[in-house]
């Protein structure tokens, strides 16, 4: 199989978005603050990357209230899981072909 960097999904070019997907791939759900701490980014920065991934349909959002305070939890969608795994496969193939 011939692979090229064009096979890499554009949504995953950014390190922060890649980080969000990695964290959500191994956690059922994570809230905004947990993601923020893990990635060490600003609120605005994180929110914009989340919006991008949400538009792609890769992550889902569940809003609820804890003690009357809004709490937003994010999770990876089936579509996101498939795309992320595909991305990992392509990364691996590129690295192997460079050897």
């Amino acid at each position: 199989m011939k692979v090229s960097v064009n096979d890499l999904h554009k949504a995953f070019e950014n390190r922060t978005r890649l980080g969000i997907m990695s964290a959500l791939a191994v956690n059922d759900t994570l809230d905004f603050n947990s993601l923020k701490e893990l990635l060490d980014v600003t609120d605005g920065n994180l929110a914009s990357h989340i919006k991008t991934l949400e538009k792609e349909g890769f992550i889902g959002i569940k809003k609820s209230f804890i003690d009357n305070k809004p709490n937003t939890k994010y999770h990876i969608t089936q579509e996101g899981k498939v795309a992320f795994e595909e991305h990992l496969n392509v990364l691996e193939a590129i690295i192997n072909s460079q050897k």
Partner: peptide
């Protein structure tokens, strides 16, 4: 993006998966 170090990408993915879980 071509010059991106893909190894670094993979290393960060692995580290994030471990750190977050």
């Amino acid at each position: 993006s071509r010059e991106q170090d893909y190894n670094q990408d993979l290393a960060e993915i692995r580290s994030m998966m471990e750190r977050s879980s």
